[in-house]
């Protein structure tokens, strides 16, 4: 699904979740699989919108910095995403919220991420800690 947009997705993902920079290739594959699976259950039009938005994020910085998103440093990437998040145009805010949600799902829905942040819920409940 992300063959043409993998670099863009990863650049945005590492801005949304800085810890994602430490992901291995296999962990990235898990992130992408989770996102792709979520998108596969959505209408095709929504999937197209996500892809268009990814490419929009890639090109937008050309107007201000003369560089594509993937060529920006961390601080400028964050500025671009923040500009989108707080934008006066609702569609841009909505696009950013949706993309951010997919990335957070891809990253935090992995058991390894839950483990890393210390999330320890267990079906055994109190028995697991007493």
């Amino acid at each position: 699904m992300f063959s043409d947009t993998r670099d863009i997705l990863r650049a945005i993902a590492t801005t949304v979740v800085p810890e994602a920079k430490a992901l291995t290739e296999s962990e990235w594959a898990d992130v992408e699989r989770i996102i792709a699976s979520a998108l596969s259950k959505r209408p095709p039009a929504m999937v197209r919108q996500v892809m268009v938005f990814l490419r929009t994020v890639q090109r937008l910085p050309l107007l201000r910095y003369g560089l594509r998103f993937t060529s920006l440093d961390d601080a400028r990437r964050a500025q671009v995403l923040n500009w989108l998040q707080e934008n006066r145009i609702f569609l841009l805010r909505k696009g950013m919220w949706g993309l951010r949600t997919l990335i957070l799902m891809g990253y935090y829905a992995r058991p390894a991420a839950a483990d890393r942040i210390g999330y320890r819920a267990s079906a055994r409940g109190w028995q697991a800690i007493r």
């Binding site: 801005t15 949304v16 979740v17 800085p18 810890e19 964050a78 995403l81 998040q85 951010r100 949600t101 957070l104 799902m105 990253y107 935090y108 829905a109 991420a113 839950a114 890393r116 942040i117 210390g118 999330y119 819920a121």
Partner: peptide, 23 residues
């Protein structure tokens, strides 16, 4: 749960992550 918590916290980046790491 981790994703639901992350999604429902507005924003992104270092500040957002610092809360998630403090789970």
């Amino acid at each position: 749960f981790p994703f639901t918590a992350a999604k429902n916290m507005t924003g992104f980046g270092a500040e957002h992550s610092s809360f998630m790491r403090a789970f």
